[in-house]
Amino acid sequence: MHRRVYLAAVGTAASAGLAGCSSALSVLEDDPCSGDECHIGMNRTEFLPESYEVAVGDTVIWKNTSEADHTVTAYDGLIPDEAEYFASGGYESQEAAYDAWEDRGGRLGSRQTFEHTFEVPGTYEYFCIPHEGAEMVGEIVVTE
């Protein structure tokens, strides 16, 4: 009987000790890109941050900060009319990016980056092809 009480106490203490670690990890996952290395990180199924604001002419750098493969793919109809389409892999349309993904085209492996310069003000919505079903979406808000 004493063994069960001891094991329960040890398990509770270990869980309490690790709680602080998971909180610290959560903070890191909220902002995996600090400094000049990147602006938007990617965890398993999220862009971090999900919404990012820049000025016209700014370049945004995405970095795959997870172990999963990702893409950065603009939604054709959800970017300003005059804006240049963007997708990792350099595809010129959402359809072309989808087609290329069949052979893993546009893939960003762990620690790889993709960048795009925004020249037209407005809101740009984008997603990750392999994680679109998990709602891995983001937006860039470009101001004058």
Rank of each mutant, 00 (worst) to 15 (best):
D30G: 10
D30R: 13
D30A: 15
P32K: 11
S34T: 08
S34V: 02
G35E: 06
D36C: 01
D36Q: 11
D36S: 13
D36E: 13
E37R: 14
C38T: 02
C38N: 00
I40N: 02
N43S: 13
T45H: 10
T45W: 05
F47K: 02
P49M: 04
E50G: 12
E50V: 06
E50M: 11
E53I: 02
E53M: 01
E53K: 02
A55D: 15
V56A: 08
V56E: 14
V56W: 00
G57C: 12
D58M: 04
T59H: 03
I61F: 03
W62V: 08
E67N: 13
A68G: 06
H70N: 08
T71E: 03
T71G: 08
T71R: 07
V72M: 05
V72T: 08
A74F: 03
A74N: 03
G77R: 01
L78I: 00
P80F: 10
D81F: 06
E82M: 11
E82W: 07
E82C: 08
E82K: 15
A83H: 06
Y85H: 08
Y85M: 01
Y85A: 00
F86I: 13
F86K: 13
A87H: 09
S88E: 03
G89N: 10
Y91K: 06
Y91S: 01
E92D: 14
S93T: 14
Q94C: 01
Y98D: 03
A100T: 07
A100Y: 06
A100H: 11
D103H: 13
G106N: 03
R107Q: 13
R107G: 00
R107T: 05
L108P: 11
L108N: 12
Q112W: 12
Q112S: 14
T113Q: 13
F114W: 13
F114G: 01
T117G: 03
T117N: 08
T117A: 10
F118N: 00
F118K: 00
E119M: 09
V120K: 09
P121S: 10
Y124T: 08
Y124C: 07
Y126W: 11
Y126N: 09
I129D: 07
H131S: 08
G133A: 15
G133M: 11
G133D: 15
G133E: 15
A134I: 04
E135W: 03
V137S: 06
V137P: 00
V137C: 04
